Computed example of a mutant assay.
Amino acid sequence: MSEAVGERMRAGSRESILAAARRAAQAHGYGGLNFRDLAEDVGIKAASVYYHFPSKADLGAAVARRYREDTAAALEAMWAETADPVLCLRRYPDLFRRSLENGNRLCLGSFMSAEYDDLPEAVRREVQAFADANVAWLSRVIAAAHGAAPEACAQRARAVFSAVAGAQLMARSRSDIALFDDIIESYRKTGLLGQIG
């Protein structure tokens, strides 16, 4: 086997581990990351998981980082698709809805936030960075729609992020995606996810 083929296989294994770990963490949180179970899910030996991620903390931080990066890319793609900031704000909950559609899972950032006290420092930093990235994007969208002062935009952004994450949590606890939709619609009717004023 050539060195290039071996490198591609290692990269593929790493990506498969990250994907499996993301599914596990969205369903069971950081505590649900188990190297033996991940290895079985991916179809490799547990030692191979340790090759890529020497510790559970390394794996947890890598999963949370990738989740944050993927979410940031999705938010930027949404912004690029439309110049309408109000439409972006209305579409924002769709990112959280997708987790519910995928096996009644939670946003990884939300799940790990609930475990914050028990997380290794590297994972904590990624959880905070996830929330910060969401709030920064929402602040930018709100500023584009309304032109309010930066602190007012940040305050509203934190409210939107918290409200949408809370709606997801409530819907998950009842395995009821329709409840999520109803709560989000109520946010739109009250103006939290609609006209900004």
Rank of each mutant, 00 (worst) to 15 (best):
C107E: 13
E69Q: 03
Q155I: 08
M78Q: 12
F180E: 07
P150N: 00
V135I: 14
E126T: 07
A144N: 09
S13C: 10
M9N: 09
R90E: 15
A144R: 10
I17L: 04
Y50K: 05
E3A: 10
I196V: 11
G60R: 00
R14C: 01
T82K: 11
A74T: 01
M112Q: 05
M170F: 12
G6D: 10
L179W: 01
M78I: 10
Y50I: 02
V127S: 01
A72V: 06
G103H: 06
L33S: 02
D41P: 07
S55Y: 01
M170L: 15
L59H: 04
K189N: 12
T82Q: 11
G60N: 00
A148E: 05
E115G: 05
A171K: 03
G147C: 03
A19K: 03
F111S: 10
W79N: 13
A72H: 05
I17S: 01
S16F: 05
G194P: 10
L75V: 02
S16L: 09
R188G: 12
F130E: 07
E121P: 13
R172L: 13
G60A: 00
R98V: 08
T82L: 10
V164H: 09
D176L: 05
A149I: 01
S173C: 14
E115H: 03
A148F: 03
T71F: 14
A77M: 10
F35Y: 06
E115T: 04
F130P: 11
L108I: 09
E69I: 01
L95T: 08
I196K: 12
R188M: 12
V63D: 00
W137L: 09
V49H: 00
R14E: 02
S162F: 12
R14F: 00
A21C: 03
G194V: 04
I196Q: 13
W137H: 06
S186P: 15
G31R: 02
M78V: 07
Q26F: 08
I44H: 01
D41T: 11
G147A: 01
R14A: 02
R8D: 06
I196R: 10
V135H: 10
D181Y: 06
A145N: 07
L192S: 09
N34A: 11
L179A: 07
R98L: 11
M170T: 12
N34W: 08
R90G: 15
Q168L: 08
R8W: 06
S110L: 15
L75K: 04
P150G: 01
S2N: 04
A129P: 02
F130D: 08
Y92H: 11
H28R: 09
H28P: 07
E151Y: 06
P85H: 00
Y50H: 08
Y116F: 15
C107Y: 08
M1V: 11
P93D: 10
T190L: 12
R174S: 13
I142H: 02
A19D: 06
V141Q: 05
S173H: 13
Y67P: 09
A171M: 02
G194F: 05
C107D: 12
W79S: 15
A80T: 04
A129V: 03
